[in-house]
């Protein structure tokens, strides 16, 4: 799930960019201190591997849907958190620059949501303690699933919080979380299962490769990080469930299908969410509230026929101008080019 530039306020985007940039530079400094030993080549090719792995769509057992590897956790298992974070950074940057996934300002958010959460939170808390060298297959799968679920839940929560802080969506924080978190729970389980399958495969074929990434020493492996991870996950899920419960006292009203289909339900939902948000808004100044918009949240001036007409006329003119400028520049380029290079670009 990529956070998009379109939802970001400059403050949130800038802060997250600074935070992720800071983590990246710390990670880079940590790595630079160690000898290379093939790490440059390894990280580069593993970054490309993450892209290639996303092509392998597999059937999720018990459902009709399919999933693919997202890679953050697997990278952390193979490379350790610092190198994995930088590798994820490169993957996300290519997605932002070249594939229009997310955006350049949102890169900071995405790196935090998908890189930091997986490499620095989920991996050390949930995954590393469970995935030792001589862990049983079941334990290993459990660790991978726990890690993936935690990483994806935190990542989705990140998207929700960043969007809410930016004030771009009228959807209240909780409803948005309710929309994203369950979906990401399913994705996380699938991702964890396939990560576990790959790690098991590696352990069967090249056990020495896992030695570096999962340094849980036998005997010293404490269960505390697992418990902390589990508690975090539980708090997260519990919080979600309780939100869910309190948000819909009459049980079934909150359902996407009905929201889409039945306008009266929307009204009720709307009032319900409004009330809830009024009571719980994190940043009331940024919140959307249709009826009583606080000053600053709705910079559009009060409707008045005169200004609206000139606004609309101006908008049309601006659009027309932009298109005309583009077309003129294109024509000018073509006229400029044609006499000198009769053959077009190869």
């Amino acid at each position: 799930m990529h956070m998009s530039d379109a939802f970001l306020s400059p403050a949130v985007g800038g802060a997250m960019l600074a935070a992720s940039g800071g983590v990246a530079s710390v990670a880079a400094r940590r790595l630079r201190r160690r000898p290379d030993e093939g790490r440059v080549a390894l990280m580069g090719v593993l970054g490309a591997f993450v892209f290639a792995a996303q092509m392998v769509n597999f059937a999720i057992p018990g459902t009709g849907s399919s999933g693919h590897l997202a890679g953050g956790l697997l990278l952390a298992i193979l490379l350790g958190p610092h190198a994995a974070f930088l590798t994820m950074a490169s993957v996300l940057a290519v997605q932002a620059f070249v594939f229009a996934d997310g955006g350049l300002l949102a890169l900071g958010c995405n790196l935090f949501n998908m890189g930091f959460c997986a490499c620095y939170v989920a991996y050390p808390l949930a995954c590393r303690p469970l995935v030792g060298r001589e862990a049983s297959a079941r334990r290993l799968a459990l660790g991978a699933v726990a890690g993936s679920v935690l990483a994806l839940q935190l990542g989705a929560l990140g998207v929700v919080v960043e969007t809410a802080l930016s004030g771009a969506s009228a959807l209240p924080l909780r409803s948005f979380a309710l929309l994203l978190l369950p979906v990401h729970l399913a994705i996380g389980i699938a991702e964890g299962l396939v990560t576990g399958a790959v790690v098991l495969f590696l352990r069967r074929t090249r056990p020495e490769l896992l030695a570096g990434g999962a340094p849980a020493a036998p005997g010293r492996r404490s269960l505390r990080p697992v418990l902390v991870g589990a508690a975090l996950a539980a708090a997260l899920v519990g919080g979600v469930v309780s939100w869910f419960a309190s948000a819909r006292p009459d049980g079934l009203e909150w359902s996407l299908a009905r929201v889409g289909a039945a306008p009266p339900a929307v009204d009720r939902l709307h009032r319900l969410l409004e009330g809830l948000q009024a009571a719980t808004a994190l940043l009331p100044g940024y919140a959307f509230r249709g009826d009583a918009a606080p000053a600053g949240a709705a910079p559009w001036p009060a409707p008045s026929a005169g200004t609206t007409a000139s606004g609309i006329a101006g908008a049309l003119l601006t659009l027309g101008l932009a298109v005309a400028v583009g077309a003129a520049l294109r024509l000018a380029r073509r006229a400029d080019r044609s006499p000198r290079t009769p053959a077009g670009p190869p």
């Binding site: 392998v56 597999f58 057992p61 399958a197 590696l202």
Partner: peptide, 23 residues
Amino acid sequence: RPGLRVAGSMLGQLLLRTLARAQ
């Protein structure tokens, strides 16, 4: 599409080749 186990092996193979290439 491949099931989970097959996908795990395929990705594992891809990963092994990737690691060999890195070397």
